[in-house]
Nucleic acid binder design. Structure first.
Length: 798
DNA sequence: AATGGTCAGCTG
DNA sequence: AGCTGACCATTC
């Protein structure tokens, strides 16, 4: 008997294991590991993934697989093994690990219908409800309050319940037509057609000289009625052909040639090329200052990989997946590139994925999830801006793309390049230890000097009577650039991208009734929305506390800056980039293009504009308040500040004109600001490593965060304490457990949250122990309303 | 997650 | 007896 082990699409602990199904003889040759199948599960049908297929001599009582959903496996053996590893590492459900590797379009959709069987008479109520139909959606019957009648109907055999499983992914097809007549015969037929068949004659005329050619129907201009007629007369045949939705339709790329590498670049790329040729799994940390030509190294390494007939994956942070970036890959590798980013529709992502799966492309450029691209002969994985926190997924499975990349590279014996101007401390420490090979690009291409950086002490400005948000120095420089016709970029380093409202009289800030966070203000709909639970309210015009009408909108602050700037420099042309101006699709891109075309002198925005901005005439970068994120309750605050300031400074003077950077701050003495101004990564690393060592944080310790939530704060805190007590004896004395303490966001969706942080160096039993905790609460936690989640190597400690 | 089974408690 | 809602075991 042939048996398939299947993971079903039910993401709970209790079903988080394979279920065995018999394979019907007709599918015997078809069903393979890595395929999606529809299987009966309890009374319904669900999607499942085949993990393995085996043959057993004795037959046992198993339900049969209903049908396969794929013709070929969607996950190869390597990805199935990777899912295994991911499940263990992140303590997620197997089904989540499998699902995350596929485009969203391939997630199953379920629908439920009732249908008459015709084997027994319908009840009068059902007869009126169905009104002659054979089938009706379950919801419709439910809304009509007929569920008891449906039950009866199923019992007496007059009704069936149908569980349908559909894959959302629809291949887009076009109708193709071809004339089956030889050229001579075609003319004959046209002549012999009746006089009134004008359209049909016209239609057949289009096939003249196109003997044996398939034409897309929509391009021939033949209407579907006419097509039907000539197909029926068997002059023409038709077929459906799959087409890809093309996200880059209508854009052309002028191919470019590899640039000549500088000596420094050459020195950095050599070890990479060597490992590509050896086919050795070696991670590289490419530490290159901004403008040092990292991308060209990526491109030439990929060329080498393609020449060996292998494939390459390039990960970039979502925000820098701008056309500016992807165009460089398209130009060099043309149609061999697939691009995966959140701007694509579900269907477009599905199509790009299929191109990868069918090996029609050799290079993938994409955000985090592109690390799962279903290639089978990977020769190189690149992670650009490797320090970016967006590489860590914050929902299950909570994986870090860097870890997945290194894991896959091990399997394929290929190098990984982690590139950054400001590597994460974790990666740099690994490079210091020799786990990664460090490659350094310490010069900008063509020896363009790094911009000069001035730190302005805003306390000093205030003392001298300047109450504006621009220091005199920065203001003079902005004015100077406008006069010279050069461009400036101003950053407002705000902690969030969101805005809120506040009463100016009593200081009241609307908070979500379910969560302990302030509501986000959405200008276009004049609404307040909770970022955590989705609760919505209309924004008040009067303060609910003191009835004052002085309600102020605190945006990201960019609007206020713009107003003040226009007051001081009325002639300045400003482009503002924030949540309000980039809300619509493609707006981000359009604004950048305008700026690139020199339609404005000043680009003003939050950190969202820091990435990948590369225009020749930017000669001034101003950071209005460098320290806003320095004071966040996060042990990475200094690192993030340093990274951001360094990145931002790198936007200036990348081309012929030299650049200048002005950093305004209230804490000029802070090392992350000082050292960012000096562009001195090494010193920052040393200093920050000391603080991390003292605090017992990464990279000296690993972290695991346990969050417990319950409707009652007391229950949550007591249970968190219990968990700590249970875990402690399982760990070595070297492990440190902090807490339990209330989470920084102490309530979400009316549930109080308590957390404990485990710091450890080597705890082989930790994964197992935490899994037991999760299993324990899956069993009994449901009835008592407790929820427990675990994040291994967390980035967000809220 | 969703379903069907079991059982206490209520109606009439 | 017949029905409803709560709980809970089961899903190859």
């Amino acid at each position: 008997m042939n048996i398939a082990s299947v993971i079903v699409d039910v993401a709970v602990r209790q079903t988080d294991r394979p279920f065995d199904y018999s394979i019907p003889d007709m599918w015997r040759e078809v069903i393979q590991p890595g395929m999606r199948v529809i299987v009966p599960f309890g009374p319904r049908h669900v999607q499942g993934f085949v993990l393995s297929v085996k043959e057993e001599p004795e037959s046992r009582k198993l339900k049969p697989i209903v049908e396969p959903m794929d013709i070929v496996p969607v996950l190869n053996e390597e990805l199935l093994m990777l899912a295994d590893w991911l499940t263990k590492e992140s303590l997620c459900f197997k089904i989540s690990a499998l699902q995350v590797m596929l485009p969203a379009a391939m997630k199953a959709k379920y629908s439920k219908h009732i249908r008459t069987t015709g084997e027994a008479p319908l009840s009068p109520q059902m007869q009126t409800f169905l009104n002659g139909r054979e089938e009706a959606p379950w919801e419709e019957a439910s809304e009509a309050g007929l569920l008891p009648d449906v039950r009866k109907g199923v019992k007496d055999g007059s009704l069936d319940v149908i569980y349908a499983v559909r894959s959302k992914g629809r291949k887009k097809t076009v109708r193709m037509v071809k004339c089956v007549l030889p050229e001579a015969k075609l003319q004959e037929v046209i002549q012999s057609m009746p006089k009134n068949a004008i359209k049909q004659k016209e239609a057949l005329q289009t096939f003249c000289g196109k003997e044996g050619e398939w034409l897309p129907l929509h391009e021939t201009g033949i209407s579907s009625a006419v097509a039907r007629a000539i197909i029926q007369k068997e002059y023409v045949t038709e077929k459906q052909e799959e087409v890809y939705r093309d996200p880059l339709a209508g854009r052309t790329f002028t191919p470019d040639q590899p640039l000549l590498l500088t000596d420094i670049q050459q020195k950095a790329i050599n070890p990479i090329l060597e490992k590509i040729h050896e086919a050795a799994a070696q991670p590289f940390l490419l530490h290159g200052v901004t403008g040092s030509g990292k991308t060209e190294i990526y491109l030439q390494s990929i060329s080498e990989v393609l020449a060996k007939g292998k494939e390459a994956i390039v990960l970039v942070p979502e925000i820098s997946l701008t056309p500016q970036m992807t165009d460089r890959f398209k130009k060099r590798f043309g149609s061999e590139v697939a691009v995966l980013h959140s701007g694509l529709s579900t269907g477009e992502k599905y199509d790009e994925w299929r191109k990868i799966s069918r090996k029609e492309v050799k290079v993938v450029v994409g955000a985090r999830s592109a690390v799962f691209a279903p290639f089978e002969n990977i020769g190189l994985i690149i992670i650009d801006e490797e320090h970016e926190t967006s590489y860590k997924q914050e929902e299950n499975p909570r994986y870090h793309a860097r870890d997945v990349a290194i894991r896959r590279a091990q399997f394929y014996s290929c190098p990984v390049i982690l590139g950054s101007a400001t590597p994460s401390l974790e990666s740099y420490a690994r490079a210091q230890k020799g786990v990664y090979t460090l490659l350094t690009l310490d010069q900008r291409v063509n020896d363009r000097p790094l911009p000069t950086v001035d730190i302005i002490d805003m306390r000093e400005e205030l003392r001298e009577g300047n109450r504006s948000m621009f220091s005199r120095d920065l203001f003079e420089k902005i004015k100077d650039r406008i006069e010279k016709g050069e461009q400036a970029v101003l950053f407002l380093n705000k902690r969030g991208y969101s805005s809120f409202i506040m009463c100016r009289d009593c200081g009241f800030v609307p908070e979500c009734p379910n969560c302990d966070v302030s509501m986000t203000y959405h200008r276009h709909r004049h609404q307040l929305k909770c970022h955590y639970c989705g609760h919505e309210d209309t924004a008040p015009d009067k303060c609910p506390e003191c009835q004052s009408e002085h309600i102020r909108h605190f945006g990201t602050g960019t609007q206020k800056v713009e107003e003040e700037l226009l007051k001081l420099l009325p002639e300045a042309r400003i482009i503002r980039m924030d949540v309000d101006t980039t809300g619509t699709k493609g707006a981000h891109e359009r604004l950048l293009k305008q700026f690139g075309n020199k339609e404005a002198d000043i680009l003003l925005g939050t950190q969202m504009i820091a990435k990948g901005l590369d225009f020749p005439d930017i000669t001034l970068v101003g950071v209005l308040s460098a320290d806003t994120m320095l004071h966040l309750p996060d042990f990475r605050a200094s690192e993030k500040t340093f990274q951001l300031l360094t990145q931002v400074s790198g936007r200036a003077g990348r081309h012929q004109l030299p650049g200048e950077v002005v950093i305004q701050t209230y804490t000029p003495e802070h090392y992350s600001i000082q050292l960012a101004a000096d562009q001195h990564y090494g010193a920052f690393y040393e200093q920050e490593m000391m603080t991390r060592k003292m605090g017992g944080y990464p990279p000296f310790y690993y972290l695991a965060l346990i969050t417990v939530s319950h409707e009652e704060a007391i229950v949550a805190s007591a249970e968190a304490a219990k968990i700590v007590a249970n875990i402690k004896p399982e760990l070595s004395p070297a492990a440190v457990i902090l807490g339990p303490v209330a989470s920084p966001i102490s309530r979400i969706n009316n549930r109080y949250r308590w957390q404990c942080l485990i710091k450890y160096k080597r705890e082989p039993k930790l994964g197992e122990t935490l899994k037991h905790v999760l299993e324990h609460y899956a069993k009994q936690g449901k009835s008592n309303g407790l929820m427990v989640s675990v994040d291994i190597h967390p980035y967000v400690l809220m």
